[in-house]
């Protein structure tokens, strides 16, 4: 059971059998997408919690480690993503107004931006792999690390990190190897860096797949995309990917301490 709706401003839409009204259907899709995005927020949120916790515990190690990242490449990527977010919004607008050619242009540009983002990411990652910054057995840290063990690890109750008066334990067992632990703290930073940016890049790849599929469907005038809703939903997803990066860039690349 479907119903064709004609409206001067909005492209025709089909009503699925479970809905009564086109408004109800549109709102359901948008609310449904937002509910999904809520799950995505919680998904990335857990990683931000881990980052915050470890940075508060190991401020110096994280400060040093984050300096090894390339802020300029990060800045470029932020710019690319913001641009793609703008073009995605424009693509949705064109689709709503039924301007097919413009939709294809804006969608195509968004996809290009996404590929550009991944390209920059590739340059960053390869540099980090070359310098053995990928966590694991081959992780290396060439710069000197401070050997003072009191720089607040969990064993020392991390009072330095949190500025509280020293009431904890200052003695360490004989087996304690400050150099080794300092190395691992940097590894911890890079673990979080790779997990967060990697997961974000994975979302970008999903975005590319979705947007490219839509681009092809619109190009071949498939009836599924007569409705603007698929483009709108993909747009919401893409903006969300942008939002994650809006937080990720300053918190990982720019701010070392807190």
């Amino acid at each position: 059971m479907s119903l064709e709706l004609q409206h001067p401003a909005v492209a025709p839409q089909r009503l699925s059998h479970q809905f009564e009204q086109i408004d109800q259907q549109n709102d359901s899709y948008i609310v449904g997408m937002w509910t999904f995005l809520v799950t995505e927020i919680m998904f990335f949120g857990a990683l931000f919690v881990a980052l915050t916790v470890y940075r508060s515990v190991y401020p110096d190690a994280f400060e040093q480690a984050h300096n090894a990242l390339n802020v300029w490449l990060g800045l470029t990527n932020t710019f690319i993503l913001l641009t793609s977010s703008f073009t995605a919004a424009m693509a949705v607008r064109s689709k709503m107004l039924g301007q097919r050619a413009l939709t294809l242009v804006f969608l195509g540009f968004t996809i290009l931006c996404a590929f550009g983002f991944l390209g920059v990411k590739y340059v960053e990652y390869s540099a980090e792999f070359r310098e053995h910054h990928f966590p694991g057995p081959n992780f290396q840290w060439s710069q000197t690390v401070s050997s003072a063990p009191a720089q607040g690890d969990l064993a020392a109750n991390s009072q330095v990190a949190l500025g509280a008066p020293k009431v904890g334990v200052n003695e360490f067992p004989a087996s304690y190897q400050p150099q080794q632990l300092e190395l691992h703290k940097r590894e911890l930073f890079f673990s979080l860096y790779f997990v967060m940016t990697g997961l974000h890049a994975f979302h970008v790849i999903i975005g590319i797949c979705t947007l490219s599929t839509l681009w092809l469907l619109i190009y071949f005038k498939h009836p599924v995309v007569d409705d603007y809703m698929p483009v709108e939903l993909a747009g919401l997803y893409w903006h969300f990917v942008d939002i994650v990066w809006i937080f990720l860039y300053p918190l990982v690349y720019l701010i070392g301490k807190q």
């Binding site: 919690v49 916790v53 470890y54 515990v57 694991g136 632990l181 691992h184 590894e187 911890l188 673990s191």
Partner: peptide, 20 residues
């Protein structure tokens, strides 16, 4: 991949795992 997030051997906190 051998990344370390919760592993105490690299300063990670297993309690954080339990929190999450």
């Amino acid at each position: 991949f051998g990344v370390c997030v919760f592993n105490p051997a690299c300063g990670g906190d297993p309690i954080l795992f339990e929190h999450l």
